[in-house]
Write a protein that binds this DNA or RNA. Sequence first.
DNA 1: AAGTTTTTGTGACGATTATCACAGGTAAAA
DNA 2: TTTTACCTGTGATAATCGTCACAAAAACTT
Lengths: 191, 191
Amino acid sequence: MTNNSKTLLYKTITDLTEISASSLDKLFEIANKRQLTKGETILKEGQICKNIMFVEKGYVRTFIDKDGTEINTDFTFEGNFTTNLKSLRSASSADNSIQAGEITTLYEFDKDKLLELYNVSAEIESFGRKLLEQLLIAQEEHTNLFKIYSPTERYQYLQTSKPEILQRISLSQLSSYLGIARETLSRIRKK
Amino acid sequence: MTNNSKTLLYKTITDLTEISASSLDKLFEIANKRQLTKGETILKEGQICKNIMFVEKGYVRTFIDKDGTEINTDFTFEGNFTTNLKSLRSASSADNSIQAGEITTLYEFDKDKLLELYNVSAEIESFGRKLLEQLLIAQEEHTNLFKIYSPTERYQYLQTSKPEILQRISLSQLSSYLGIARETLSRIRKK
DNA sequence: AAGTTTTTGTGACGATTATCACAGGTAAAA
DNA sequence: TTTTACCTGTGATAATCGTCACAAAAACTT
């Protein structure tokens, strides 16, 4: 696609890093726009993840199948990137799946094309590094939730720090993300 | 310090990424070797983290103070890097502390010097990106422990996937890292 | 609008875990 | 060796949470 400065993708990249118009063009050239219906699968367990995805609209849900039960490990909303880094990096089969939680628009960046761009443009590699930094900080914070807080406290933490997630994700989907049984989360919320 | 190919640091970097001798030299030039006694603090809560640390020997413990109780969020052993990325990146005060768990040798990389090298050498920035990838994959895996497994299963998981941590970290230190009370972990281990 | 599916609330119960208190053990220091 | 500090084990008890079962509510379909 062509560089469209009205997209959330444009805003997100330029907010994160300083980047020239030509590098930005290169990134947009390899971006593949895709429309998804609710429930449509982007990555399926066992497949090899081949791209990084940016959510322009809607959201996607990342989950692991444990003995037939789906455990949600992540929700990626508009303005954020997601992938299965482990699978992407080592071309190994993914242990999780990703699917759209709503009607979703996303941009896919092919791994190989992106790696080529890293070699061509230091700015683009710098963007990649900064994006990873951001993701790692968020992930560390999320992990610490489980070490520091009880289930009730984890829910309260979400209320103040990420209230939008509570409005868009159903209680049943949220419970596994917080490591709490659905029924328990229902009772916690009642208070 | 000068480039010493016998160090674990050398091996760790060259195993992770392809890098020229001159770039490697630049990295070693900004590396500051430091010896720590057991219990010595490297980063204290409230301070601003200014460098990335590589553990050449021994290990360091990262922890948060919660109402007077220390909760361990990470252990970094020989051959690994650590820092407080959030504090480092935004020059904000750290919400955790880092201290040596044994007599420890580490190499410190000053943030500003490293950022300069990123601009000078694409290889070095590429190294930074790959390192972050590795850290993020590990962190994601660690988070999922809490979502997928019960306390008992978490302990068993460590037994098979990271047995060295069980031998080097005391039960009391390990319990908060696994989100389990010390007494409960003692009982789990008995089986 | 009626029917179907999905989501949420709730009671009952059992299992797991946290907490408190203290004893014994181990390791480091004097 | 003795002292001191820290770490681990264990019992008792209470609190929390998970599981099962089912009803109610809400959200989609047709």
